[in-house]
Simulated assay, not measured.
Amino acid sequence: MSVKPAPASAPFAGPFALATLSVPGEPSFPALVTSGQLVIDLRTALDDAQLTTRRLLEDWQAVLPRLRSLAEDGAAPRRPLTDFQVHAPVEPRQVFQSGANYRQHVIDLHVAHKAPGDDRPEDERRAEAAEIMDRRATDDLPYVFIGLPSAITGPYDDVVLPSWAAKPDWELELVAVIGRPAHGVSVDEALEYVAGYAIANDLTDRATVFRRDMPQIGTDWLRSKNAPGFTPLGPWIVPADSIADPDDLQLTLKLNGETMQDESTKDMIFNVARMVSYASQSAHLLPGDLVLTGSPAGNGMHWGRLLRDGDVMDGSITGLGAQRTRCVAEVTS
């Protein structure tokens, strides 16, 4: 059974957010959630029975003023958010994930994932990683790879830990949701292509990150990050104009009530604009696509405590609400 906290405990910045909701036995639908935790069914409000959140994002510049008006219009029918199941807010066509984008996090990973035969003291390896991070911020490019939409699940859904995942870990991340087709955009204009922001937890099986059988190949992101449900997303998308500065938000993840990650996006090596711009240099970003911007220090490898059956993760980001997911061990025959 999924762990579903009262959505009223997860406020967001601004007058409204976009969500995808449902009631039992009926298909999900796009909704406007007001700051009072009330729901407006956008199929009815916009007179489009086939409407989806992604279609809203495909026409974001035109629809945004209408959504603002709906949020202010007291005549629009509303129901309490607690009447609905909350799903991932959008079904993206593409998911762009970022690795090694928080300075302290990467230093910790560098120390935890030492190469076989590297017997140097920890402080020496930590100093080496710090020097690498400072050089990257100045001279290098972001590290971006492709995730699978099929790994996405709702913000309150259970996460099944595969039986083969020996070291499943958490990674809370800020997500930029694309609102206009973007290709080859500059850093200065990149945020103009962001419709809003959301929360993701980019779960990773540390045991399968590196191909030990083929070290010359390197990382295996398919196996380590893309199991079904390994990317809890949401609970909603908060419009970009409701977030004053995406590069100054606090990310906090608690495991069974104990704080594990608690860091500002200020610690990013490459900020949101640089991440979106970089992804667009190679790929054609589409409305509804997700750009995950990396995770800060405090993952399970750092604490020496990986995920196991029954664990509950609470993740929050300033102005974006909160998600809660429970880990459930895979049942094998």
Rank of each mutant, 00 (worst) to 15 (best):
D289H: 05
R223L: 14
D169W: 12
K225G: 04
P287D: 07
T153H: 06
I40K: 01
A165R: 09
Y156W: 03
A273L: 05
A190I: 03
P228E: 09
E192I: 08
R211S: 07
G304C: 05
R103V: 06
A19Q: 12
I243C: 02
H302V: 12
G294Q: 00
S295R: 04
L191I: 10
D188P: 01
A8R: 13
M1A: 14
G257W: 09
D119A: 13
S35M: 11
H87M: 08
P27N: 06
K114Y: 13
R180S: 08
A240H: 04
V39K: 04
V63M: 13
D205A: 13
V63C: 04
R326L: 01
E171W: 07
T259G: 05
V272N: 03
V95N: 01
L233P: 01
T332S: 13
M301H: 15
P77I: 06
P235Q: 04
R55A: 15
G14P: 00
Q94M: 11
M313Y: 02
D83M: 11
G234Y: 05
E192C: 08
D289Q: 02
M260A: 11
D248E: 09
Q97P: 07
D139P: 00
S69R: 13
D169L: 08
S316E: 13
S186F: 07
G36F: 10
A329E: 13
T259P: 04
F12D: 03
D241H: 11
E173V: 02
E171H: 07
Q61P: 04
D309I: 06
R66V: 01
A115K: 14
D213Q: 13
T34C: 09
P121S: 06
A75I: 10
Y143P: 01
R211I: 08
A322Y: 01
T325A: 02
G179C: 00
P155C: 03
A182M: 01
H302P: 10
T204R: 06
A182L: 04
R79C: 07
D248N: 13
R212Q: 13
S28W: 10
I152S: 03
M275C: 09
P24V: 05
S186Q: 03
S264C: 03
R135E: 12
R212I: 10
F84A: 04
E192A: 15
V194Q: 08
A176N: 00
R324K: 01
A6N: 15
F29N: 07
A166Q: 15
D134M: 04
T52Y: 06
P168H: 12
P24M: 04
A62S: 11
A76T: 10
V177A: 00
P27H: 05
G179F: 02
L203D: 01
L46W: 07
V177N: 00
R305M: 09
S150D: 14
S69A: 15
L109N: 12
D267G: 10
P155A: 06
D119S: 12
S22V: 08
A279Y: 02
Y143K: 11
D73Q: 02
G234S: 04
M268I: 08
K114N: 15
P77G: 02
A115C: 09
F210C: 08
G184Q: 05
T293Q: 02
V291F: 01
A75G: 07
T53V: 11
Q94Y: 04
